[in-house]
Design a protein around this nucleic acid. Structure first.
Length: 406
DNA sequence: TCTGGGGTCCTAGGACCC
DNA sequence: TCTGGGGTCCTAGGACCC
């Protein structure tokens, strides 16, 4: 079998770059994209901001301390999804084997299309030129014999990078590569590995596989292969991706709350978001999970599996609320999350007219909300509760010193 | 002025059945 | 009267990714 040729395409500072393209006055400036609200963090920042020390995950205040003139933008997912779809369409002009890894990253298997377009470098440059020309965005591309190394390569010379890792260079490269640079090895794993004397990817590759397996279980084998730069995982086009396994939403509240009334209202909202997405994607599920994070950041998740499959917001809410009430809460609540797992695509048989009617109304509401945005139409109970005093403001509400674009 | 939100996969232990 | 193992389903929590 001939070696594969895999590309990893990674957009540079994607959200921030999209904002700078839409609003030219932001170009060349330090900007950060974040959610609305006080308790948000930096999701992406422009390279101008990064140069000043702004990093993903920083609080607004921390980021501003590093860079006082930093301009905050409230993220707008629709803009990013729109650009992302256009990028994927461009990539598919080169090969049908496009794996969408995230909203701003994709893998391409171009093993079979060199005769059509030329060498891997030529293909990478064509992709860069088209994304730049059609969307005004830059990206970094890694070229390698597999996904693990292609992803590594794309990150080596950001932004606007183009790095190729040839088979004969792998060993040398891994020898001087800190092990945590490999995708899949995070802080904790890196710490455990360093206790075994493993610092570089090369160390990992030379380490006895049996010891790794004994220490880390099933991932021991994968770790061993990673250390050798081996990754046989194929590029999986999104059309062949497995079904989703869970649907969930969570929100950090504007301030910590203890009132059951307020908590119920937030759970209503989250249940409605989850239910609406499930219905849109024709899922039902039978395990409801509630996540509660308290003011001291202690976080717990409790699940409850039902006898039958559900898809209605009301049933999801009742499940989540039931779980909430079964817990003794000693502290104020900071975050609430609702998710549904154990998903199935089967349609439920509707036995009762009442049920069927409710479902039709629900579906109609979904269509309106899909067109006009979240909570344009909603259950009376939700509306009522949302009007009360002290209710959490929706995350998209702009704040002072924040620029709204589009 | 502390610390987002969307997921996946894995492990470990308990209940229960055969 | 003492003692067992396999398999499945469920829950809770942790690590990892973007």
């Amino acid at each position: 079998m001939t070696d594969r040729i895999i590309l990893h395409v990674d957009l540079d500072a994607f959200f921030a770059s999209v904002e700078q393209r839409i609003n030219p006055t932001l170009r060349g400036k330090a900007i950060a994209v974040s959610g609305g609200g006080k308790r948000t963090v930096v999701v992406t920042s422009s390279y101008e901001a990064r140069a000043r020390g702004v990093k993903t995950g920083m609080t607004i205040h921390e980021a501003r301390r590093h860079c006082p003139e930093l301009i905050f933008i409230i993220g707008n997912n629709n803009k990013y999804i729109d650009s992302s779809v256009k990028i994927i369409t461009i990539l598919e002009d080169f090969t049908p084997l496009v794996e969408v890894f995230s909203i701003d990253e994709a893998f391409l298997d171009i093993t079979a299309c060199q005769r059509l377009f030329g060498s891997p470098e030529i293909i990478a440059r064509l992709i860069k030129r088209r994304i730049k020309g059609e969307l005004g965005l830059t990206c970094s591309i890694g070229i390698a014999p597999n996904k693990l190394l292609a992803k590594l390569a794309s990150g080596m010379e950001k932004p606007e990078g183009l790095v190729m890792i040839r088979p004969e260079e792998i060993e040398n490269l891994l020898d001087r590569l800190p092990v945590e640079k490999l995708c899949g090895i995070g802080d904790k794993l890196a710490k455990h590995l360093s206790l075994l004397g493993i610092r570089s990817a090369g160390d990992l590759g030379r380490f006895p596989e049996g010891t790794l397996t004994k220490r880390f279980g099933v991932i021991g084998h994968t770790l061993h292969l990673m250390g050798l730069g081996i990754d046989e995982n194929p590029v999986v086009p999104y059309q062949r991706e497995p079904e989703a396994k869970s649907v969930g939403h969570s929100t950090t509240l504007e301030r910590d709350i203890s009132s059951e009334h307020q908590i119920a209202s937030v759970l209503w909202r989250l249940s409605e978001m989850v239910g609406r997405r499930m219905r849109r994607e024709r899922f039902s599920g039978r395990t409801i999970a509630l996540t509660v994070r308290y003011e001291d950041f202690f976080t717990l998740t409790k699940r409850r599996t039902l006898v039958r499959y559900i898809e209605g917001s009301q049933e999801i809410f009742e499940g989540a609320w039931g779980i909430f009430q079964s817990i003794v809460h000693r502290k104020a609540v900071r975050l609430l999350g609702v998710s549904v797992t154990n998903l199935s695509h089967c349609q439920q048989l509707l036995l009762f007219e009442e049920e069927s009617k409710k479902l039709r109304i629900t579906r109609a509401m979904d269509r309106i909300n899909d067109r006009w945005g979240e909570f344009t139409v909603t259950w009376a109970g939700l509306l009522d509760r949302s009007r009360g005093k002290g209710i959490i403001s929706p995350s998209w509400r702009p704040e002072e010193n924040q620029i709204l674009t589009g």
